[in-house]
Design a protein around this nucleic acid. Structure first.
Lengths: 110, 110
DNA sequence: ATAAAATATAGATGCCTATCTATGTAAAGT
DNA sequence: ACTTTACATAGATAGGCATCTATATTTTAT
């Protein structure tokens, strides 16, 4: 599992404002002005958050005239819930299957 | 949706090392020494990471003798994948259903 | 009692991040 | 041409975080 890559994605999501933005976008495309109307922070702050979400591959942007439209990336919406399951399932890149720890006093207990 | 609460959980997961720790624990209970053996950082750093995971309700600790055993919290393993799905589904706390934006030039497009 | 092993705590450091104000840019209306 | 609107960029600041070294605590073995 690409821990570093998933950590980057999670870092982009690990913010209440961005989480709410993603939740808003889960219903469909929105422009920056509509998203901004839902929050109390300034426009440059929204611009920053949208850049973070884009860089993480969570959102894509499309400019039409003066408006910047944002849409959730389909690959993300399908792959993220799958990742959540894979992470917590047994039998996936697990210490006890991968290799046995030499010099350890511990045993698998759970 | 409790954005602040979920953001806290995601923040705890948004780190490659902690993600790998959770992946290791997905196979069962492990003591700190076994987890530490998988990484190159120091013991106080592991202690810090485990505290972050505990405070987030992702992991619980149980001391037996000298050893501190860590186990994934069952509620987390079941609820986190559900959260991932709820977040990205349509029709859940969505701007276009919740209220209509007055003074907005934007329309639902996606 | 003393030593060793496993873990936690304290304090420091360097980096990252969320937010702001100020300003630039691009598109559309008058 | 000028103004307005929508958005981005630059630079600053305050706070948070990952990591380290040093040290304390707790448990077990000798």
């Amino acid at each position: 599992m690409d821990y570093e890559g998933y950590a980057q994605t999670l870092k982009a999501l690990a913010n209440a404002k961005r989480l709410e933005i993603v939740d808003l976008l889960s219903c469909g495309t929105l422009c920056a002005c509509d998203i901004l109307a839902h929050f109390s922070f300034t426009q440059p702050t929204l611009s920053h958050h949208m850049k973070v979400l884009q860089d993480a591959g969570i959102v894509r942007a499309e400019k039409r005239g003066r408006w910047q439209y944002y849409t959730l990336v389909a690959a993300f919406t399908t792959e993220f819930p799958q990742f959540a399951q894979r992470l917590l399932q047994r039998d996936e890149n697990c210490i006890c299957h991968e290799k046995t720890q030499a010099g350890s006093d511990c045993e698998e207990v759970g």
